[in-house]
Simulated scan of single mutants.
Amino acid sequence: MDELIDILDPDGNMTHTTAMKSEAHKNGWFHQTVHIWLYTSDGEILLQQRGKEKNIYPLLWDVSVAGHIGAGESILTSAVREVQEEIGLKISSSDLEKIGIFKSVKNHSETLKDYEFHHTFIAELKTPFSALQKQDSEVEALKLESIKQFIKALNDTSNYKYVPHDISYFETILEEISNRLNSI
């Protein structure tokens, strides 16, 4: 779905211009996204399998919830909205813990360039997995995977089934979640 988004400079500052998401991807203009990683108190991470119709990385496993921040939309409002849309979970902004902003530059093709700043959050999943409702147009499947199995799978280059984020991104996510689990 195309939508109007704010355009940023390469340092992540607002340029006070907007464009359609498709135009930003075509031209390699920086913009903002939200990533929300959900984890359970017993050490599992919720993963989303990208829809088979996605332009990039179809059917690969990825962050629990992700999406573009609409033009003029607050980061937290976008995060809460995306969680509701993609997995049918109602959360409040106070459930989210921001752990960083990650710059990502991916040139998928001449006409598809993802130049993004991922505003990244973690949150404990307190709702039963069976109560989640995936958005069929965006999400092929959902699964819970133990942190131990996730780390093992990320290191298995012969059978890699995940969106290829930078390893430092994954390390930060896993460290932050592990820190929360160790304090429970």
Rank of each mutant, 00 (worst) to 15 (best):
K106A: 03
S94N: 12
D114A: 11
I91R: 02
D114C: 11
N107G: 11
H118F: 10
I91T: 02
I91C: 04
E116M: 09
K113L: 04
D114V: 11
E124S: 05
H108S: 10
T120V: 03
S109W: 01
K98A: 15
T120E: 01
D114L: 11
K126I: 08
Q84S: 12
E85A: 09
A131N: 14
K90D: 12
F121Q: 02
E110L: 14
I91G: 02
Q84A: 12
T111K: 11
G88N: 04
I101P: 12
E116F: 08
K90P: 08
F121W: 07
S130E: 12
F102E: 07
E124M: 07
H118R: 09
F129Q: 00
V105G: 12
S109A: 01
G88A: 03
S94A: 12
S92H: 08
K113G: 02
K98F: 10
L89H: 06
E85G: 05
N107M: 13
I122P: 00
L125R: 01
I99Q: 00
S93T: 08
L96M: 03
E97K: 04
L125Q: 02
T120I: 02
K126H: 10
K113A: 04
L96Y: 00
G88L: 03
I101V: 15
S93L: 06
H108D: 13
T120L: 03
S109P: 00
Y115P: 05
K98T: 13
I87Y: 04
K103D: 10
E116R: 08
F102N: 06
G100R: 04
V105Y: 05
D95G: 05
K103I: 10
A131R: 15
E86R: 03
S130N: 08
D114K: 10
I87K: 03
E116C: 06
E116Y: 06
F102I: 08
T120D: 00
H108R: 12
N107H: 14
L96H: 01
E85C: 06
V83K: 01
A123F: 10
K98M: 15
F117G: 06
A123D: 06
E110A: 14
A131Q: 14
Y115W: 14
K98L: 14
V105P: 13
F121Y: 09
F117V: 07
H118D: 06
E124N: 06
S104T: 13
L89W: 05
V105F: 03
I87V: 08
F129T: 00
T127D: 13
K103R: 15
I87T: 04
H119Q: 12
I122Y: 00
K98D: 12
H119D: 10
E86D: 05
T127Y: 06
E82Q: 13
E116L: 10
V105D: 13
L112G: 11
A131T: 13
V83H: 02
D95S: 06
S130M: 08
S92Q: 09
S93R: 09
A131M: 13
T111R: 10
E85H: 07
K90A: 13
E85L: 08
V83E: 02
E110K: 14
I87Q: 03
K126A: 05
I91F: 01
Y115F: 15
E85D: 11
I87E: 03
S94F: 12
F102S: 08
D95P: 05
S104D: 15
D95W: 03
K113I: 05
D95H: 05
